[in-house]
Amino acid sequence: MPVNRPPPALEKAKRIKLLDIVVISIVAVVIIAIYYRVEHVLVYRWNWGLVFEYFVRIDEATGDILPNLFLKGVAMTLRLAFWGTIIAAVIGIVMGLCRVSNSLFLKAVSRLYVELIRNIPPVVFIFVFYFFISSQIIPLLGLDNIAYTASPNTIAVLEVLFGPIGLFTNFLAGLICLAVFEGAYITEIVRAGIQSIGKGQWEAARAGGLSRFFVLRDVILPQALKTILPPLASQFIILVKDSSIVSLISVQELTFLTQDVSNTTTQFFESWMLTAALYFMMCFPLAMLFQRFERTGLGIQKH
């Protein structure tokens, strides 16, 4: 029987140290100072009630309660985030595989894509890309006709999925911009994940008679997924936040509509603080969810 030797007793760490008190005091002073500046120097008139009216409105003719600008904006942002995540993930996986391919051509194409997007400011990219796709690509799809030919039921479903049918081409343009932009970052995450798998795994799989496709599918990608997942999750949260840049091309999502509210009401603090809270409420649960995945590892075996 082995003897159980208890570990030496360690001194318990104090919960709050002097440094914590100092930092908390500094933060408190700054908050009080800001409050003082706003209330007594700027003399800002708070009017939260006015801003809250922009959540829902009551139709004067029928008495129905309808979503107003904030809720419409949240819905549009969620649509952008949902479809954007899916499209960006597809682009990222395909391009990421191209980055590690044997073909010089595929490597060059994916490298060019990633470098172009990473080295151009998002705002500039959005403008350049938007004017190209909105004037050249989207008319080719003939989407405008859908609004005239589809049945009311179809249109109702489409409106839930993609927003008001009249703004559909505009939404699509914004969505493609966002997905292409975020896809570049996901490409790099996928590439790094694949390259994190040791050379020995490739060699063993190849020596074991697997073709390149099965080497990737059965051996490399399942292992890479573990490395890819955490940065991928944080990239999806970034995507939700970055969706605000498509407000520049008049996609009527939360940021765009908040501009409307703040201009109409002139209650700038309230409008933007409310929008900040709304974005937080969208992103924070996502962060929690992904953290959970990371802990449970999505059922992937630890090694």
């Binding site: 795994q201 020596a207 074991g208």
Partner: peptide, 29 residues
Amino acid sequence: RRKVGMVFQNFNLFPHITVLQNLMLGPIR
């Protein structure tokens, strides 16, 4: 590679699947 098998210094087993699955992969594929 079907005719010539190889054993490595560092084993290079696939860590994400069981021993049995390690052995089944090549024959299946």
